[in-house]
Nucleic acid binder design. Structure first.
Lengths: 66, 66
DNA sequence: AAATGTGTCATCATACTTGTTGACACCTGG
DNA sequence: CCAGGTGTCAACAAGTATGATGACACATTT
């Protein structure tokens, strides 16, 4: 499930033409944190997902369409 | 944000006519864990939300419409 | 009155996420 | 060639979610 979520984040990030570093910058997060999220090696918290969704300018529900 | 999410869980749970204990049972979770979630005192993980959504027989996106 | 169901709260140990730092291989542009 | 961007991986400290247990007040039921 984390894997699928990660793939969706990659998809939405690339749709904006951003690199992991760029998304991290907008999220005020670390480049490595984004990378872990996208690889699906962690089980992120709701707030982390909210921050990513906000950075991607979408809703949480939109991000979670997995 | 956790507060709003908690209120949504309460709403969806009551829509099914369930008590916290009943939702917990279906989730294979502790009654107190559900209560913390609903009060918004924790920042739940994606997997926890997935388990709750599954118990409520809705999608994660549906649960996260907050 | 007593028992049960309900929501709430606190505390504990364990496991995990997160931010951080450092590192590596790969590719592309100067 | 080489400097920079890219994605990946590992390990650490600090903070936190989770499951568990126990407790409390309130309402409803028997």
């Amino acid at each position: 499930m984390s894997r699928k979520l990660g793939k969706r984040i990659v998809l939405l990030r690339e749709k904006k033409g951003w690199s992991q570093a760029e998304l991290a910058r907008v999220c005020l997060k670390d480049r490595q944190s984004i990378e872990r999220l996208e690889r699906g090696t962690t089980n992120p918290t709701a707030y982390t997902l909210y921050e990513v969704a906000s950075a991607l300018e979408i809703t949480l529900a939109e991000l979670l369409k997995i």
